[in-house]
Amino acid sequence: MNRLPDLSPDKSPLTLVEVIYSTTIREVMSTDPITVERNTPMSTVQQLMRDQGISGLPVAEQGRLFGIVSVQDLIEALQQGKLNVAVSNCMTERVVTLEEDMPLSMAISTFSKYRFGRFPVLNAAQRLTGIISVRDINVTLVNRLLQQVSKFESMFDSEVTPGIELNRVFHTRQHDFENGGKASTTIKKHLVDHHVDRSLVKRVAIASYELEMNQVVHSIGGTISYRITPEAVEILVQDRGPGIENVDQALTEGFTTANEWIKSLGFGAGLGLPNAKRVSDIFFIHSEPGVGTTVKAVVYLQPKKEEKHETE
């Protein structure tokens, strides 16, 4: 059986600690567990375990728990030819139980302490109401953490700055044409929403999109960071490789290393880098084969003396 990791508060992220202390066992356990009675024959236990795919059955009558019968108990009964005897002769009587109002953290520490696969759960009146397994805990933890992650992501997305200032990083993946361009679309919308002049928006959008699609088409993935101030939009594009052999050649219109299927998607004509450079006020590129490419492009939002740089 897989052991649960150490989830003690001092060693775990706060989000996880919050989840395991604020969730009760009642929310995690399986309710209406299949049970057997004390006089049920072990042959019925064998059948139930096989048909239902379970490895432990509480022994209970009218909600009162008398014990638990496990696969281990069944194997022993089989070895001793005791399939016809009553469960009460084979079950474990001293059962470790949990209560449904306890926090999930209690269940986790109980699982860590004992090496059982499941524990019966009782209510305040000491009646059997459920059973909890490591699987139940795993499913709950994954679901709760997914909810938390979604919450964090939506908080990040909806972080609204009242002014035009914005610092944001987007990630790209190789050949991810479905999401390629989303960063540029988002930035364009931000500028339009802040009433930036249409021709400036277009220049930022083109520089950004050309660089973003270059990353999707040619690199193995990377990041695009935007720093927007009232004065300028600064786009910093960094990928993890493969790097450009000859930067001067890549800046020549019409030079391309794109294959036919990329061209069939409408890209790879060898115009991207020169076009991004054309619309930028500052353009800087550095590339190292086997390492990656960094491009910085700046478009001024306020009138400024134009300056253009190419490579280092």
Binding site: F177, E178, G180, G181, S184, T185, K188, R198, S199, K202, A205, I206, S208, Y209, E210, M213, L265, G266, F267, G268, A269, G270, L271, G272, N275, R278
Partner: peptide
């Protein structure tokens, strides 16, 4: 790539490319 290098405003895009990137390009320019 051709659409992105065109220096025009108030234009319509005539195309037979029915992809998401085509619409993104139209929006960005």
């Amino acid at each position: 790539s051709d659409v992105l290098v065109a220096h025009l405003d108030d234009f319509v895009l005539v195309t037979s490319l029915a992809s998401d990137q085509m619409i993104r390009t139209a929006d960005l320019v």
